[in-house]
């Protein structure tokens, strides 16, 4: 018969951390601009980060009022 495992604080923390530990630290993509290949999405993202929307604009919206 399987012995039930007591849920301790340490075990809970380890269980919660496991999915993050298993994930790769990065997606193996170089982050330095010099090493990046050009691309439509990269260029778009760079232009978007240069723009400054108003501070009080939320990203959530409704399409049909």
């Amino acid at each position: 018969m399987k012995t039930p495992v007591r849920l301790t604080r340490r075990r809970l923390a380890a269980a919660l951390a496991a999915p993050f530990a298993a994930a790769p630290a990065t997606n193996a993509q170089p982050q330095q601009d010099g090493a990046r290949r050009p691309g439509r999405i990269r260029e778009a993202a760079a232009k978007l980060m240069a723009a400054r929307p108003g501070k009080n604009i939320s990203p959530a919206f409704r399409f049909i009022p």
Binding site: N27, R40, A51, P53, P59, A60, F61
Partner: peptide, 26 residues
């Protein structure tokens, strides 16, 4: 592959910036 590589690089910051700019565009 090239599309996915670029999509994976997008940070939450960039997506939220795009959506906030989209809201002002709307």
């Amino acid at each position: 592959q090239h599309f996915l590589a670029q999509a994976r690089e997008l940070a939450a910051f960039e997506y939220l910036r795009a959506m906030r700019l989209r809201r002002s565009l709307l």
